[in-house]
Amino acid sequence: MMQVFSSNPEVTEGPDRLFSKKYYSLVRLAIPKGTQIKRHRSMMTVTVVAIKGEIVFHTDDQETTLVPGQAVLMEPLEFHWLEAPNEDGEVMVVHVVKKPTEK
C-alpha cells in the first residue's frame, strides 16, 4: 500500500524525520548557510540526495559538492559530514539495512 510522507516546513535547521522504523528511515536535513553537520557514521547503508542549495559532502577519504538531483551512497560505518558554506541547503537522507546477499 502506498504511503505519503510530508516534511515540516517549520524545520529550518537540522533533522525533519518523515518516517522511521527499525530498519529504514527517511529524514529531510536542513543545513543553514555557514553551518555544518558534524562527523558521524551510521550502522545502516546511507543514501543522501541533495534537494536544495550546494552541499559539501565529506568522507575521511573524499569531498564532493552536491547540487539538487545528485546523490551519494555510503556503506554502513563510513564516517561522513556535511556543510553548506555558501547558501542554505537541504538533503533527503535514507537509512536502510540491506539484506545479506544470498548464495
Rank of each mutant, 00 (worst) to 15 (best):
T47K: 02
M92Y: 14
K52M: 07
E10H: 09
R41C: 10
I55M: 03
P85H: 04
K21G: 14
V56G: 00
A50V: 02
R39C: 00
I51R: 02
M44A: 09
R17T: 15
K21D: 15
H95E: 14
L73R: 04
E10I: 00
S25T: 11
K22L: 06
G14S: 12
T65G: 03
I55P: 05
N86W: 07
V91R: 00
N8C: 10
L26P: 15
H80D: 05
V4M: 11
A30S: 15
F57A: 09
D16N: 09
I55C: 01
G69I: 05
D16E: 07
E54I: 00
F57V: 06
V46A: 01
P100I: 09
D60P: 00
M92R: 09
H40V: 10
L66I: 01
Q70P: 04
H95P: 07
I31S: 03
F5L: 14
K38W: 09
N86F: 05
T45W: 04
R17G: 11
V67P: 03
P9M: 08
E87Y: 00
R28V: 13
P68T: 02
T101K: 10
R17W: 13
I37F: 13
L29Q: 15
Q70I: 02
E87T: 06
Q62D: 07
T65H: 03
K38G: 09
K99R: 15
P100C: 07
V94Q: 08
D60V: 00
L18W: 10
P68K: 02
E63A: 11
S25W: 13
P85C: 01
N86S: 12
V56A: 03
K103G: 10
E90D: 08
L77F: 06
L82W: 04
S7M: 07
E102D: 15
A30D: 14
V56E: 02
G69R: 07
L66D: 01
M74G: 02
V91T: 03
V48D: 04
R41A: 08
K98D: 13
S25A: 14
H58A: 08
V56S: 01
L26G: 15
V56Q: 03
R28N: 10
L82A: 08
F19T: 11
V93S: 07
R39Y: 00
V49R: 00
P9A: 10
F19N: 11
L18I: 09
I31F: 00
T12N: 12
P76K: 07
V49L: 13
T35D: 10
G14Q: 09
E83Q: 12
T12H: 07
T12E: 06
I51E: 05
R41V: 06
M2E: 14
M43C: 00
A84K: 04
M43N: 10
E54P: 08
T65D: 00
Y23D: 15
K99A: 13
L77T: 13
F5D: 14
P76L: 05
L29F: 15
R41L: 08
L66S: 02
T64R: 05
P100Q: 10
D16Q: 07
V46I: 01
T101L: 08
L77N: 15
R41K: 10
T35S: 10
V96A: 14
I55N: 03
V27H: 12
L29P: 09
Q62V: 02
